[in-house]
């Protein structure tokens, strides 16, 4: 099964006129692949390499450099809690601890039902509304134990 479909290739081709090289399209293409598949498999890297006429090594070195690119599958909801200093001062560690307890996984792991992956991440640039976390594309800010519980209950319901 190929990951590169016409939706993705059309979007990438639309960006071509803006860039003097094909390699510049690599990061946008990897974002597209991850947006569709949730992660970037070795096969997907090979497809990306072929599409942009790059050696696989160029793709591999880029995928492994950037934190956002997942090289293994993640849950449907990827919960990324900022534990950098501003969030830490505002209680981020307690949020991680309660998420670990609730989900039964440690940070960096995925729940057995593949619904959630919990990650600790570095500064998300939302320090004024700390503590914060990102779930897929969305930021959730000014979190408290209560608001976190409400949010997680809502996520759980979405899976029902």
């Amino acid at each position: 099964m190929t990951v590169l479909d016409s939706t993705i290739t059309q979007r990438i081709d639309a960006m071509r006129p803006h860039f003097p090289t094909e390699q510049a399209l690599l990061i946008p293409l990897l974002h597209e692949i991850q947006g569709k598949a949730g992660w970037i498999s070795r096969d997907a890297m090979q497809e990306a390499a072929s599409y942009l006429h790059l050696p696989l090594s160029k793709v591999l070195e880029v995928v492994t450099f950037y934190t956002m690119f997942n090289t293994k599958p993640v849950g449907k909801k990827h919960i990324q809690v900022c534990t950098n200093v501003a969030c830490f001062l505002r209680g981020a560690d307690q949020l991680v601890a309660s998420l670990e307890k609730r989900l039964g996984v440690h940070a960096g792991e995925t729940t057995a039902d593949q619904r959630y992956t919990l990650s600790e991440v570095e500064c998300l640039a939302a320090c004024g509304t700390a503590p914060c976390m990102q779930v897929n594309d969305d930021y959730h800010e000014n979190l408290t134990e209560e608001s976190l519980k409400t949010l997680m209950d809502k996520f759980d319901q979405e899976f029902q």
């Binding site: 960006m15 803006h18 860039f19 510049a24 990061i27 946008p28 990897l30 974002h31 450099f65 950037y66 934190t67 956002m68 690119f69 991440v121 570095e122 500064c123």
Partner: peptide, 11 residues
């Protein structure tokens, strides 16, 4: 012309 380019998580 302007074009947006998204980073991918690297300080």
């Amino acid at each position: 012309d302007l074009c947006v380019y998204r980073g991918a998580g690297a300080y």
